[in-house]
């Protein structure tokens, strides 16, 4: 199988590392060669962060370059737009519609672009957008945005439900498992 590429983007501290961990675990158990590349340190302090997940028969590079991503999974809509040039022609976007103002917007030095989802759709891009924060709160914690997104992403994969559940179980603390299962279901069955 040709290598498939996923990028997970968001704002430092939103929980992308856990999402990539669950995804990596799942894909390895499906028998794929997998590489996941993360960035730690300075960028985690509220900066723009990107995590790469690649899987296939044999994966070499740990990073996804421009025009290569089959999926963009995004925690924040401005970040979706920032990393859009990574998307492959025909690639799928799964994004949270939440807006988090970056410091240049807060200080008034820059403006937060409007109607990003509509603009992307107008370009013919496949955008699956939803308010993951509300769904995460519905599941019991606003921190579960990452799992809501994974639930939505599972929609586009031909991987059995119990394999996702197993990976979830292996990577989240037992006391939060039920909450995360609920978040996963809410994301998976969301109707846009």
């Amino acid at each position: 199988m040709e290598t498939k590429n996923i990028i997970i983007v968001g704002v430092g501290g939103q929980g992308s590392l856990l999402a990539s961990k669950i995804l990596g675990h799942l894909l390895m158990n499906q028998g794929y060669d997998v590489k996941v590349s993360e960035v730690h340190g300075m960028s985690q302090r509220g900066g723009s962060v990107i995590t790469y997940v690649r899987f296939g028969d044999k994966v070499y590079s740990p990073v996804v370059d421009k025009g290569e991503a089959d999926f963009i999974v995004s925690f924040e809509i401005l970040e979706t737009a920032r990393w859009l040039d990574c998307l492959k022609a025909g690639g799928q976007i799964v994004t949270n519609t939440q807006q988090i103002d970056p410091m240049p917007v807060i200080t008034g030095a820059a403006r937060y672009p409007e109607n990003l989802v509509e603009k992307m759709r107008a370009q013919g891009l496949k955008v699956d957008a939803m308010d993951c924060l509300s769904l995460a709160r519905q599941a019991g914690s606003q921190k579960a945005v990452n799992i809501v997104l994974l639930g939505r992403l599972s929609h586009y994969f031909d991987i059995p439900e119990d394999a996702w559940q197993e990976s979830l179980k292996a990577n989240v603390p037992p006391k939060f498992l039920e909450l995360n299962k609920k978040a996963f279901e809410l994301g998976k069955h969301f109707i846009s």
Partner: peptide, 20 residues
Amino acid sequence: EVTAGVTVEDKIPARPPVMC
């Protein structure tokens, strides 16, 4: 040759790291 990738027309404001 490499693919350029798509973009939106808007200027995307930078998101530098900040104190929490």
